[in-house]
Design a protein around this nucleic acid. Structure first.
Lengths: 332, 332
DNA sequence: CTGTTAGCGCGTTCAC
DNA sequence: GTGAACGCGCTAACAG
C-alpha cells in the first residue's frame, strides 16, 4: 500500500505538502505541486480516507434509510439527494431497513460510530420520541413520513390538500359515492383521509363510513378493499386509493368481478409510481415532486451538518394531479 | 464526545482493557469486565469506528452497485446479501450508478480509499477489461451480468437455458410463430436469444429474423417491439420478452391494437418481477433465484475479502418457469 | 511557500 | 490479567 509518506519521500517533500496538494491548498508552488502530482500518478497513490476521516472527524457521507429499495417511489427522491450531495462534496449511501426497528438500530450505529455524517429517514419504524432524541445529538432529516410531534427537520407534501384534490377531481366528474382504500397507520395516510372528508363535506355529501376501508396497504390491500366494497348493498362509483399499488390491486379485483375501469367505476391512485403510466388502464394519480423533495432534504441535511440549521422546519412542497385513463365522468 | 480514554479513566483501568472488553477478548477478569461495561453504559459511550477502522485497516462494509434502486428486481438479491453479511459481521450499503461510468468511478473510489472492503456489481457500465484489472487489486464480485472474459467471481443463472425453457414452453403450447423482443446489449440478453434459437432449431422451426426485435429494453421497448411485429405480414402468435417490463409494454400495445392476451397472442416475460403477478393478465415468466443469488454473491465476497478465494468461479444457480395467465395453448 | 510536530481514537504488542 | 507504548494515515497548527 502506498501512503502519503511514500509519496512525500519520492517527491522529496514533506507529507504535509503532499496533503496540501491533495486538498488543493493554494499555498504550494506550482513547481512543487506538479512534481507531487506526477509522483502521485506514478505511484498510483490512493489516499486512505480512513486516516483523513479520523483526523477530520467526518466522512462526508450521508446515509438514507429506505423501507425497501424495491419501492420505486424513492428512486427519484434519492436522485435529488445525490444531486445536492455531490455538488457539496458529499456522497449518498442507502440501506434497507425493512421497516424493522432492529434493522434500523444496526444502521443507526453508523451515525453514532461516526461512519456517516447524517441520516435521512424516509419512513421510520421507530417512534417519534426516540427520533426526536436522536435528532438532538445527530444530523437527522425526515423525508415524507413524520409525526406531529417529531422534533427534526421534515420535507414532505401537504397530504391533506392532496387527498382533497384527488377526491375533488372525482366529485367534479359527477361522482357522489366515493370510497377510500388506504392505511392510516402512517400519518400521510391519515392526512389523505382528512382531505377526503373535507372534500366530501364541502359539497354536502354525507360521509358513509362503510366506504372507508382502513388499515390495508399495497397491492393486496387493494384486492381486500374492493372485496369489502363490492359486498356492500350500495356500491361506490369511484375509488380513491392512497397509493398506486393499492389502486392496481383494486383494479385487478374489479376486473375479476367484470367491472370496467373507468366506465363502471373510476379509480384514482397516489404517488405517480412508475407503474401508474404502464398499467392498463393508466392511472389517474397525485404526483409528488419527488426529485425536489430529495434535493430539499439533502439541502437541509448539509446545513444541519455544518451547524447552519438550528430549528426544525416542516417544509411542504407542491403536489400535482395527473389525469389519465382510470377516471372518467360518471355515466348516468 | 466520549472516547475510550474517558471510559478507561472512569473505570480506573487502561484504554487497552476497555478495548479488550469491547472486542470480547477473554483475558479480562469478570469483575473488571462488568465494571467497564457499567461505565460504558453510564457514559453512553459509542466507539468511534473511524479509529478502529484505521487501526484494523478494514471497515467490514460491502458496497453494492445498483443500476437504479427503482429496479425492483434487485431488492430480493440485496436481502440475500444482507443475510449473509450480517451473519459474518459485515454491513451492506448500496448506491445508484445510473449505468454511468462516471458515477461508477465516484463510488469506485470508496474501495480504493478503503472506505469499504468490497464492491458487488449488479450491472456494470464499465468494460470487462477495467473490471478485471480492478478485481486483481480489490475484492470484486459480479452479480447477474458479466462478460465472457471478465476475470472476477460471478454469480448468475444459465440465461441460455432459461431462454430455451421459456421458448420451449411456448412451443409445447403449440406455437410456431414465436417472436423475441429484447436487448442484446447485455450478455444476459444475448444468451437468452441463443436459448430462443436453440429451442426453435431443435424442433425444426426455421428462424424468422424479422421476428427478432433487438436493442430495445424496458417498458417502452415492449411498445416499440410490438409496433414492429404488428407491421409484419405474417404476425407471430407468441412473444418471448426478455424482461417483464418489456412484456408489460408489449401487452399494453397489443391491447391497444385490440389483440387479446393470451387468446390472440401469448406473452412470456423474464425475471418474475413483482409486477408480473400484479399485471392484467398476470405474466408467465422465468423466475431467478434472487435471494440465493444475493446470498451466494456475498459468500464469495466475504471469502474473497478474507483471502480464501483465489480463483474466479462462475456460479450458475437454477431458474424456474412460472406459468400464469399470459400464455395459453394456441387456438386453432 | 514548506517542514516539523502533534494527535485524531483505537487495537495490538510486549512487558510484567 | 493488565498497562504502557506505539503507530495506523492523515491534516492542522505553528514556525520559519
Amino acid at each position: 500500500m502506498v501512503t502519503i509518506q511514500d509519496v512525500a519521500k519520492e517527491a522529496g517533500v514533506s507529507a504535509a505538502t503532499v496533503s496540501r496538494v491533495l486538498n488543493n491548498n493554494h499555498s504550494v508552488s506550482i513547481k512543487t505541486r506538479e512534481k507531487v502530482k506526477k509522483v502521485i500518478k506514478d505511484l498510483n497513490y490512493q489516499p486512505n480516507l480512513l486516516g483523513r476521516n479520523l483526523r477530520r472527524m467526518e466522512t462526508r457521507m450521508v446515509l438514507v434509510f429506505l423501507y425497501n429499495i424495491s419501492n420505486p417511489f424513492y428512486s427519484k427522491i434519492v436522485e435529488g439527494m445525490e444531486t445536492i450531495a455531490h455538488k457539496n462534496g458529499y456522497n449518498v449511501l442507502m440501506c434497507n431497513t425493512n421497516a424493522k426497528i432492529e434493522t434500523e438500530q444496526i444502521y443507526l450505529n453508523f451515525i453514532k460510530n461516526k461512519l456517516v455524517d447524517g441520516i435521512i429517514f424516509t419512513s421510520p419504524a421507530m417512534r417519534h420520541k426516540a427520533l426526536s432524541e436522536l435528532a438532538k445529538d445527530y444530523p437527522i432529516v425526515l423525508c415524507n413520513e413524520y409525526e406531529r410531534n417529531t422534533q427534526a427537520p421534515v420535507v414532505t407534501i401537504d397530504n391533506e390538500e392532496a387527498g382533497y384534490d384527488a377526491v375533488n377531481h372525482l366529485i367534479r366528474l359527477g361522482h357522489k359515492k366515493i370510497a377510500l382504500i388506504g392505511s392510516c397507520q402512517v400519518r400521510s395516510g391519515y392526512e389523505r383521509e382528512l382531505g377526503y372528508r373535507k372534500a366530501l363535506k364541502e359539497v354536502g355529501i354525507e360521509i358513509n363510513e362503510s366506504y372507508i376501508i382502513r388499515d390495508v396497504g399495497s397491492y393486496k390491500g387493494g384486492i381486500i378493499g374492493v372485496k369489502k366494497l363490492l359486498a356492500l348493498k350500495e356500491k361506490p362509483t369511484a375509488l380513491f386509493c392512497i397509493s398506486d399499488l393499492i389502486a392496481i390491486g383494486a383494479i385487478k379485483q374489479l376486473k375479476k368481478n367484470k367491472l370496467r375501469v373507468p366506465e363502471d367505476i373510476a379509480v384514482i391512485g397516489f404517488d405517480n409510481n412508475r407503474i401508474a403510466n404502464m398499467y392498463d388502464p393508466s392511472l389517474t394519480t397525485i404526483a409528488q415532486p419527488r426529485y425536489d423533495i430529495g434535493k430539499k432534504a439533502m439541502e437541509l441535511m448539509i446545513k444541519r451538518i455544518k451547524g447552519n440549521l438550528t430549528s426544525n422546519p416542516i417544509i411542504k412542497l407542491q403536489h400535482e394531479l395527473i389525469i389519465r385513463d382510470s377516471t372518467l365522468p360518471i355515466m348516468q
